[in-house]
Design a protein around this nucleic acid. Structure first.
Lengths: 206, 206
DNA sequence: GTCTATAACTCGATAGAC
DNA sequence: GTCTATCGAGTTATAGAC
């Protein structure tokens, strides 16, 4: 080990943000403690205020980053040129993969938006609507061609997101009910890439 | 008005619990303030400690009650004698109805369990497993009879719960994205009783 | 049982030395 | 840029009068 003990390859600011992310994601704004973030980063509490002026500002950096991770993922794929069923498949696979790597993200985002819905205004929709428009056209076209049943874009999107996000958000509950061990749960989520895709396509296919 | 100003028909303890539920559900354990609960109940802060010894104990009462509202609802229906598709329909309708009347419940429960997973041990499973066993038999029977595709109970239950719970938990986000006004969202959830039932049954029907 | 006043403590933030 | 020490606001909890 030629590395120093405390994350020596990252500069202080990066280490602070990494620790802040970890603590805020798990405990939320109200539950997180600056002391705990400082300890995790291996620095002093005063340093947090030196780099980020206040807890609120440090939190905002973490929240903004989280929002940018969870929202554009969807529109990027929805706006692409893939055929409908392929698009649904890729969306589900990519989204579950992103969530596997950020298990605390859904509850973190939803809890903080529930506290303060105004946090939404900064993040929702730029070219989101363009991507939705594209997906809307895909669905209308597939309906006209008799490929899928008479459904609507809202139902399809909300149901896909539900099936991807909830099993991540409710991990402790689901693993408790079905007696799935901590380290098996990732395999379960991995298997859902396939099963959710099949579930959704079968539900809308004519 | 022959009633007094501050909820006179309920005794103090009940009023405290009502206010505590309201505040804790919205803000969580860490974010809630005893002062705010006292104000909402129209009493003094000291009274909270008179009836419930501490914030933690008051919170526990609220959490326990919430858990009892959100979990047994499922097993009650899963353990019933309804035919499979009818059982799924009733489960979805009842669950969405319960959630409509308790919009903050999902995030509250999931956020607090994320904070402290040990809260689960007190609440999960008594005769839950008996109900699951019954539903498992329903599904195996329907498979054997060629009525539904080759699926498993875990997929079916997790997907149903996902489709019911997530749209409630993510209300601020979804209403923001699709531009649904506050008071229209309840109608949307109401309409999902039918659409989710159809979605699920079509997905598993042979 | 209900209130006021306050103790005891936690936590975000800052001052100031190095 | 990093640390120690400490302030001051806010919060839970309690003491004690009525």
């Amino acid at each position: 080990m030629d590395k120093k003990v405390i994350k020596p390859d990252k500069d202080t600011e990066k280490r602070i943000l990494d620790s802040a992310r970890k603590i805020f994601h798990k405990k939320g704004l109200a539950g997180a403690r600056m002391q705990e973030i400082a300890d995790d980063a291996g620095i002093n509490k005063a340093m947090l205020h030196y780099y980020y002026r206040s807890k609120e500002k440090l939190f905002s950096a973490v929240f903004q980053e989280a929002a940018e991770r969870i929202f554009p993922e969807v529109s990027k794929i929805l706006g692409s040129e893939l055929p409908l069923f392929e698009k649904i498949k890729v969306l589900i696979e990519n989204y579950i993969e992103m969530l596997k790597q950020n298990m605390y993200l859904p509850i973190f985002i939803l809890h903080e938006i529930q506290q303060d819905p105004s946090r939404l205004v900064n993040i929702i929709m730029e070219d989101e609507s363009k991507a939705f428009m594209k997906f809307f056209q895909d669905i209308e076209k597939a309906k006209a061609e008799g490929i899928i049943i008479n459904t609507d874009i809202k139902t399809v999107i909300v149901n896909i997101l539900s099936l991807c996000i909830f099993p991540v958000a409710a991990k402790p509950v689901i693993s408790g009910i079905f007696n799935i061990r901590e380290n098996e749960y990732m395999d379960y989520l991995e298997s859902r890439k396939k099963s959710v895709t099949e579930f959704v396509i079968k539900a809308i296919k004519k």
